[in-house]
Write a protein that binds this DNA or RNA. Structure first.
Lengths: 219, 219, 219, 219
DNA sequence: TATGAATGAGCCTTCATTCAT
DNA sequence: AATGAATGAAGGCTCATTCAT
């Protein structure tokens, strides 16, 4: 009976997983319900039945992957309370990249966000903000403190904080896009250790950048 | 006859310019021939007549805007021969951003590249490489020398060079995307001076990042 | 067990009542099972379970509302045996209009017939005839006698009888349609007294018409 | 060349004519673009190309048939200036019925109006009013004068005028519907002389009705 | 050179229906 | 007795493309 129950929920779940893969690869607009359903082994009407809309399916996928991503790769990656700012930035970048690189559904969420960044579907007004805003603010806090620490003599310039935050996010998202665009690395995805190593270098780069920005206008 | 010639090129040119605007704003897939032709004041068949394909039109637009962009905003922005590496990096970022932010057709090319980065159309296999590779290599050279300069004691690590290059490009492209995604800035575009100022801060950030990467593994 | 029985009939009955409302408002084709079931608080399968078909549900609704209508508004409206022909015509028109105007389920039946008149569903072949034919014949008898009375010198012309009958029905049904089509009256339905008053004027009009037809060809 | 021109316009025209037939028979909602295009020997996209929408096609059909109907069967049917009120009413009813009974496209317009009366498509907000309102007002004027003539002692009661007008229209429209609903007459349509004869009897009936209403409350 | 007419493939969606439980 | 899950058929619409002129 339980197996049955699982199987009953199976279609819905298979639909979400197939959709996650297709949306992540093609983006919202270019993805077609037909392809998704074919992969899921379901009829096209199934989407309408379970999610009402293509929009509804997209929102469901986003929410699903968001929940999953936050659970598996929290922003602080399980850091201890007394972690340094640098450690926290590194953890953040690691989590961000782990969510968006690699294959399989751990990476949907980041890819969806990357897609959404480049070509907003307009579907995710509320849900996307609830997913993205906290992330932004979390990063913002770290950056602000890093700037303050690098230049304690004055209050962090707000536009400098925003600039640094965007630069960091930009570097990460570009990694997600670049792997499809340029054939820099093979089509094969990065392994988690490779992703972590990449994250750490981006962190190092960004720390250097933040400190340079922090002392802007002084030398 | 000359009038004829001019008029002939007129339709073709209006088509390209209208297409540039639409492709830049919507991306290749979402752009429709109808909208382009409506803007150009031409019939839908005109595209197929002049460019054979939607693909053909896209390629033409890309090539056109590329030529235009390189001419108006060369990589080195007219720097003198004996300019420092830092000055050359700053010039490069300025040119990159000037090509992709702002409105009007000076900004098509960057926006096309940004779109292409996020959602490759698959149309630009050859032509895109001819446009993008040289740019990459030019930047690569600057970065390599900057790393060498920051850490003359050893030969620049190749992967470090690539990383820094991608980070710089990522920051720039993100600026192009972000303005549509987040409502950080109004829909109104940045003015050239604002773009230059932004470029200079990104340059400062990147120089800090490059130097941090250059000494990686040493301290 | 009795509770069970009641509940069983409850679902069926709620379905019929919800369907009556929706069919009356939208017509057979435009009505959707989903809307009906939503209103009835039942699952969509319930229709197929209880009535086999959308057709079956429609037939059931028709029969139900017919039975109800005849019971509440009989053709003669409880007239005495010795009522005059004019009184009987007036009663008939009153009952016809009371069945089709006004809101709530007393008015379903007339509205269903009005819909069916304008856009036959093809579902009600037998059942509809059993509902409509007697009504027609009843009216036919009244009309025939009125013609005979108005012109006793000759046997009523059969085509004249049919014409008058159709004219009367046509006037009544048009009242049902008109209220939706023209904004003659507000969306708000007529009260029973208003309906009766309207019926009486249509009766007066029709009596004048019948008499004019009765003497056709004589003056 | 002219033949070509005619043929070029042919598709659009064939579409309108096929649509007129289908809309008249099935109503707006039940009619399908596919059936229309099949009959017209055109692809489904042709509708979109020529009329943008199913709505657009419907509006075009309505306008086309309206223009045609008014031209062929004007309200006054070419009556002379000094025609009596009775003659004018008869002419009106003749034109109304000639527009809606019979087969072929002379009868579309009336059938469309009959359909629209029973189940408003919501498409014809403006165009329908321009077609229907004048007709209504024209009839209204005749009816008002007839009432005044039948009872010169007092000003015609406005609600009486409306009632009579609606009764007349109701009788006519019912004739259009009835032929499909009841099998009173064969599926074969009426010939023009039969239609005229029918119209004249309805006119006689209505005159009797109007006079009865005119003296309402006096005897 | 340039275009209006027309098309076919494909997309999303709705709806009545069926089936296993 | 009743239902949730799932489906197939069909509908309207969009879009890039072709063809004759």
């Amino acid at each position: 009976m339980k197996a049955q129950r699982l199987w009953d929920e199976g279609t819905r779940k298979r639909l979400i997983e197939a959709a996650g893969e297709v949306f992540a690869r093609r983006g919202f607009r270019a993805a077609t319900i037909r392809e998704i359903c074919r992969r899921a082994g379901a009829s096209v009407s199934a989407v309408n039945y379970h999610f009402r809309d293509k929009d509804g399916l997209y929102a469901a996928v986003f929410e699903y992957s968001h929940r999953w991503a936050v659970e598996k790769y929290p922003h602080d990656m399980g850091l201890e309370e007394n972690a340094t700012l640098e450690e926290r930035l590194r953890a953040f970048i690691r989590s961000f990249l782990l969510r968006g690189l690699g294959d399989g559904f751990p990476a949907w969420h980041g890819k969806l966000i990357a897609q959404e960044t480049a070509d907003p579907s307009g579907v995710l007004s509320k849900v996307a903000q609830t997913a993205i805003r906290p992330m932004d603010e979390y990063l913002e806090g770290i950056v602000r403190e890093l700037i303050r620490k690098a230049n304690p003599s004055r209050e962090p310039n707000e536009s400098a904080v925003q600039l640094c935050r965007m630069n960091i996010v930009g570097q990460c998202i570009f990694q997600m896009h670049a792997r499809r665009f340029m054939k820099i690395a093979d089509p094969e995805e990065l392994s988690p250790p490779q992703i972590v190593a990449l994250a750490d270098r981006i962190c190092r780069f960004s720390l250097g950048g933040i400190r340079a920005i922090a002392v802007e206008g002084q030398s």
